[in-house]
Design a protein around this nucleic acid. Structure first.
Lengths: 226, 226
DNA sequence: CAATATAGTTAATGATCGTTAACGTAGCGA
DNA sequence: TCGCTACGTTAACGATCATTAACTATATTG
């Protein structure tokens, strides 16, 4: 339904002729250095989910994207839902831990905020498919995973809110949270954007984000209390 | 699959008991003043598509959301695809025409940019479901509609780029386009955001957007030429 | 009042899709 | 060499879902 039929059959042909039959890590858990089948599948699925949405991608499409066909996927994942779950919890954990790591032991709040912005910009530019899926298909997740992802997301936003409040004591917590969401939206727009080269794009997003966050506001912002 | 079963059956009951059987506009094209069935269906579908994605919503879910059941939808639309098509072309046209209308006959470029920001902020706050669908399900569109929507989107971004370039002659066109996308991402983040009350939210987004756009840059931005 | 258009209903159909079953094979350790 | 495991394959199953068919009721109109 998605890729052309030529590619479906061709990849199979190619696999039989030229592929050295996965000589990387012996175990299926992907502990080895080279990219295991699991990682190949997750990466391909992320790309497909980003473009067509979770429900718009079939198991056969995912398999075909890495040169295997259809149900072979069940040798590596418990199912299609499990792939999405692993994908989203993975990205959420990486974001949260990266954000935390970059804000502790900083000399002053502004430096911490700069580090946070730099971290998210770098992540979004490097993993744009994951960013798209994480914005798009969270509600396609089954309950145990969805709750976990939401908690991780909340924690990540909390890192932003705390850092921002230290830079801007004039803001209410509500306003700081809304500002954080807005700037994350700005940075996460990269997948849809006409991109410059990575260096310029990174600089541009960084500067826009900092200036959006550090605007001086006039009187009466935190009047709404709780 | 989406709404609970109780609601599905209950709405049917309620319809039989209390609904005055659509006494608004006589024609099905929705020319009348009150909301016609078509508009009810479009609105409900937008909400559902926004939350679950186009492929995640069934025809029965859409019908149930307005108190009719399943295939009754085909009395108003040629199919599910046609609903999405109408939804996305509609929103894209409204955005483009609104943007154009607000930038002609402005005294100076900065005022035009303010008007553009105000327009998009107002639109995004008022139609957050449509914004989400339009970011999310464009690729679920069949070919004639998709092309049209993309052209309208491109035109809208072009309005932003032209206005921004008048305010910021120091920017290259590439940089202006990337900036426009980024600010649209900032404003479009509203659906995912912990919202303040509309007035404060609107002010916050407006101020953040203007400051993101009107940052003074240091030397050497437009050096990349074409 | 008959006729017709409008807007519903339920049942059936056909395609798609996730998942499982049954089976094959290459590599490897005892 | 004998099995065991990892990793594929294709075929079948069952559910879901968009769409169509067949039918009903209400309201307007000549």
């Amino acid at each position: 339904m998605i890729v052309n039929v030529a590619m479906l059959t061709l990849t199979n042909q190619i696999r039989l002729v030229s592929e050295p039959m996965t000589n990387e890590a012996p175990d299926g858990t992907g502990r080895g250095g080279a990219t295991s089948r699991r990682e190949q599948l997750l990466s391909a699925a992320a790309e497909l989910f980003a473009r067509y949405g979770f429900h718009g991608v079939g198991i056969d499409d995912i398999g075909a994207a890495v040169g295997i066909s259809g149900p072979a996927l069940y040798r590596h994942f418990r199912g299609k839902d499990a792939m999405l779950g692993e994908m989203l919890t993975g990205i959420s954990e990486r974001l949260l831990h990266g954000g935390r790591a970059r804000t502790v032991n900083t000399p002053d709040p502004i430096t911490a905020l700069e580090a946070l912005v730099a971290w998210h910009v770098e992540f979004a530019l490097t993993n744009s498919a994951l960013i798209t899926v994480h914005l798009r298909d969270l509600d396609s997740l089954a309950e145990p995973d969805r709750h976990r992802v939401r908690e991780l997301q909340r924690g990540y936003v909390e890192v932003w809110v705390e850092t921002l409040l230290q830079c801007r004591p004039d803001l209410s917590e509500h306003t700081a949270r809304a500002s954080a969401h807005a700037v994350l939206g700005l940075i996460n727009s990269t997948p849809h954007s006409a991109r410059l080269d990575p260096t310029r794009m990174s600089e541009l997003l960084h500067r826009m984000a900092m200036n959006a966050l550090l605007v001086e506001r006039r009187e009466g912002d935190e009047a709404d209390g709780a």
